[in-house]
């Protein structure tokens, strides 16, 4: 009985360590940080342009949105090749959806036609910004948690 227990334990432990979530990947972390910077840049620019009464309409930001979309797609492709990355993949899918929603709101002008009150416009934009900033903060928080494992153990 004791021998059986011994071999069972040796067998179990020899199966190396338990992994429930994938290892930290620096490129994914950097990618999310880069997206966070670009999204912030859009909101800061829109805010400045509203104050300066310049054109903050959607067509002026198509290129920036497109760059962010490309980065999200690249990250989704990268995470598809990483094992046990379902949680991060889920977050990227949600971020992609959020960026599309933001673009649609931007295209619509953020407020109802005819509304000219700057305070109302800024409040409407702030609601979107707050939601996306929360998403990105939470994604980066998970990346911090994943740092428990060496980068080299990530499946590239």
């Amino acid at each position: 009985m004791k021998k059986l227990l011994f071999f069972f334990i040796v067998g179990v432990i020899s199966c190396s360590e338990v992994r429930l979530v994938g290892a930290y990947d620096e490129k994914v972390d950097d990618g999310i940080q880069s997206i966070a910077k670009q999204v912030s840049a859009i909101f800061v620019d829109i805010d400045k342009k509203i104050d300066q009464q310049k054109d903050w309409s959607y067509p002026n930001y198509v290129e920036q949105y497109s760059k962010i979309e490309t980065e999200i797609k690249t990250l989704r492709i990268r995470t598809n090749g990483l094992s046990k990355y379902e949680i991060v993949k889920g977050q990227l899918t949600l971020l992609d959806s959020s960026m599309h929603l933001l673009q649609r709101d931007h295209q619509s002008g953020f407020v109802a036609p005819g509304v000219t009150d700057v305070a109302v416009l800024k409040k409407s934009i702030a609601i979107d910004e707050s939601a996306i900033a929360k998403s990105l903060t939470m994604m980066l928080e998970l990346q911090e948690g994943l740092k428990r494992k060496p980068v080299s153990s990530a499946k590239k």
Binding site: V21, L101, L102, S108, S124, M138
Partner: peptide
């Protein structure tokens, strides 16, 4: 659109909690 954005933020938060819990 704005409500969907909030829902996405909430779901992202739950996923982070799940991930940290698993870690």
């Amino acid at each position: 659109l704005k409500i969907s954005l909030q829902k996405n933020a909430f779901q992202t938060m739950l996923l982070t909690e799940k991930g940290i819990g698993l870690i």
